[in-house]
Amino acid sequence: MMQLNYVEPSHPTVIVHQMTQLDNSTASRLHNLGIRPGSELTVLRKYPFHGPVIIEFDAQRIGIRYTVFTALLGGD
């Protein structure tokens, strides 16, 4: 296959500050995936117009909504 000019982009990482702003189901789902305050998340992609955010941690990728993402960071 043709080698598309792909360069491993360097992605920003963020730290989960808190999970109290989330509703119960979302919080426990994220818990089950291994996220807790203090976890380090790599942000692979953010869709424009507050679309979903793809994050990576512990060798797994998940997509979450923008509002959940900001809530994890402490609402900023």
């Binding site: 509703d23 979302t26 994220l30 995936l33 793809i54 797994q60 990728r61 998940i62 997509g63 959940v68």
Partner: peptide, 9 residues
Amino acid sequence: ESSVFIVEL
């Protein structure tokens, strides 16, 4: 609005 959407890739 609030609905859970967490999808593993």
